Amino acid sequence: MSLLTLLPGAHNDILVMPRWPSKQVLVDELTWQKLQAAQASLPAHLGLLLTRAYEPAVTELGRARTVFRRMGIWLFGMLYPHRKDEIDDIFGSNGHDLDGTHIDVSITIHGRRVRLLPLSVFTPISWQARRIKKFNADLVLVQTALAAQGFQLHRNATESLQIHCDLKPVLQ
């Protein structure tokens, strides 16, 4: 696994903003190249913003994430008891603890970040639907550009709005 360490800021037309409490994003080199290719295929007004990739579980930060995840699961279960079947998809590591091919991306429009989940994974489904409707054309462009480079969006609707995607290996 060949990982790149990206600090906050612009890198080859992609903005990197690590999700708190991280100070950097560790991303697989091929995944980064594919992400750059996806960015290059997008219209000029639309940008990709990388927020998360590889996060080793066996660090102090990894252990802290485990505690935050447990608290989040409890709160999510309290707020959305009818959505308990989504907890594993939303609060699982989703491959972020394996390698740098599992990433979370956000978008910018005319240089401004679009918060598709303004309350993170706690954003109500009705709010999510409004955000999808408002930004649908741009979301389709981003999803298409990512898919063309071999990325697969997460099957869970909330995770897919977090634009969690995995680079799928090319079968020879």
Rank of each mutant, 00 (worst) to 15 (best):
T101M: 13
L146Y: 09
I103A: 08
I132H: 06
Y80M: 07
R113V: 12
L26Y: 07
W127G: 00
V105N: 05
L49D: 10
A147W: 06
G72T: 03
T59E: 14
F91G: 00
G77I: 10
A129G: 04
H102P: 07
Y54D: 08
P21H: 10
S106K: 13
A64E: 12
S126M: 04
R131D: 00
V105M: 10
L48M: 07
G95L: 05
G100R: 06
Q128V: 09
I103Y: 02
A40W: 00
H96Q: 13
P118D: 08
T108K: 05
H110W: 03
L141A: 15
V67D: 10
I132N: 01
R113N: 08
L50A: 05
Q36Y: 00
L75P: 02
R113G: 07
L139A: 02
N136H: 15
I107M: 15
Q24W: 07
Q36S: 10
T51D: 08
L50T: 04
D89F: 11
L49A: 11
P21S: 05
T101Q: 13
R70V: 00
G95C: 06
A57N: 09
P21C: 06
R113M: 12
F135M: 03
M78A: 06
L146H: 01
F122K: 02
G100N: 07
I90T: 00
R63V: 09
Q149D: 05
D138T: 03
Q149E: 15
A53F: 06
L42A: 12
L141P: 03
K23V: 05
A137H: 11
I73E: 14
K34E: 01
V27D: 01
W20K: 14
P56M: 06
G150K: 06
T66R: 14
T66G: 14
W32A: 01
R69D: 12
D104A: 06
V114M: 11
L146Q: 09
W20V: 09
V27N: 00
P124H: 09
D99I: 05
L48K: 07
G92A: 08
T123Y: 09
D89R: 13
W20A: 13
